[in-house]
């Protein structure tokens, strides 16, 4: 509760995304009613018709910025937000749709849509932090619902959220997995990816595909060279890093700094 005795007001906004990260809040089945009791859910269109105007204490933003309209809207939303938190790979890194950033977007629009002139879209898909200051970025495609609850609780309590920025390898070792890269030679993004998913891919004997984005001080080009040693082609290495968090700078370094063949 804030100093004037009212419940903190929470709002959820979305841009280009799949809705999965905001769904994580509704997927917190055991905690949902408690959360709804502790805060005032002032704006959350996916869940409620009640849509109240700002200002809000916490604003959760899902999705990347891909249109002029959205680039303006995020400015207005920032002004309404005491604390603005971006949730998920779209909002924190541009998402899978940021693959357009290396392509001729107009060509893809023509490919997907019969009447391309009806489509108003920017040439790029960019993270929210490229447009406005962001107070905290919650990683993942999708985010981990327990991390989301921790983040809301910490923000309400005025403390720093306890969300580790170390690599997936730590989670993987804790689960007792045999390393897929060392034992089976399977390319795995785990060494440069932030923990948070529970190392679910290596637990199924497949390589991590990096959906939580780069860990703190990731050295992706070094891991990329190791993939080449394991026999991956340059194109395969590129594709591995160019996915859900491909626009994040630590991953972009792999193909933007690599010497041309």
């Amino acid at each position: 509760m804030s100093s004037d005795g009212r419940k903190p007001r929470i709002a959820v906004f979305k841009f280009a995304s799949c809705d999965g990260c905001q769904l994580s809040l509704l997927d917190a089945e055991d905690e949902l009613l408690a959360v709804a009791g502790a805060v005032d859910i002032a704006y959350f269109p996916e869940a409620s018709r009640r849509m109240e105007k700002g200002p809000y204490d916490i604003v959760l933003v899902e999705g990347s910025i891909t249109t002029h309209h959205d680039a303006e809207a995020i400015q207005r939303i920032r002004r309404q937000a005491k604390t603005l938190v971006t949730i998920g790979a779209c909002a924190t890194a541009g998402g899978i749709q940021a693959l357009r950033n290396w392509h001729d977007t107009a060509e893809w629009v023509r490919l997907v849509y019969a009447k391309p002139d009806f489509i108003s879209t920017l040439k790029t898909s960019t993270p929210v932090a490229e447009h406005v200051p962001v107070d905290f970025e919650l990683r993942g495609c999708p985010i981990n619902k327990h991390q989301l609850l921790e983040l809301i609780a910490a923000t309400l309590a005025g403390r720093k959220p306890n969300i580790p920025a170390y690599s997936l390898c730590i989670e993987c070792k804790r689960r007792g997995n045999t390393c897929v890269m060392v034992a089976a030679g399977t390319p795995c993004l785990g060494p440069v990816t932030q923990a948070g998913c529970g190392a679910i891919c290596p637990s199924m004997r497949r390589g991590c595909y990096g959906c939580f984005g780069p860990m703190e001080s990731a050295n992706a080009p070094s891991l990329a060279s190791q993939f080449r040693v394991l026999g991956a082609s340059r194109e395969e290495v590129d594709r591995a890093f160019r996915s859900y968090n491909g626009w994040s700078w630590p991953f972009r370094r792999v193909f933007e700094e690599a010497p041309k063949p």
Binding site: F15, A16, D19, G20, H103, L111
Partner: peptide, 28 residues
């Protein structure tokens, strides 16, 4: 809702990557 151009960027991806990518069309 802004277009995300999945049919565009699926081109050139390996078939083993496709189910993970198309999942991202819808979180529900």
């Amino acid at each position: 809702e802004p277009p995300r151009l999945f049919e565009g960027f699926l081109r050139g991806r390996h078939f083993m990557e496709v189910p993970d990518i198309t999942a991202r069309i819808c979180g529900i």
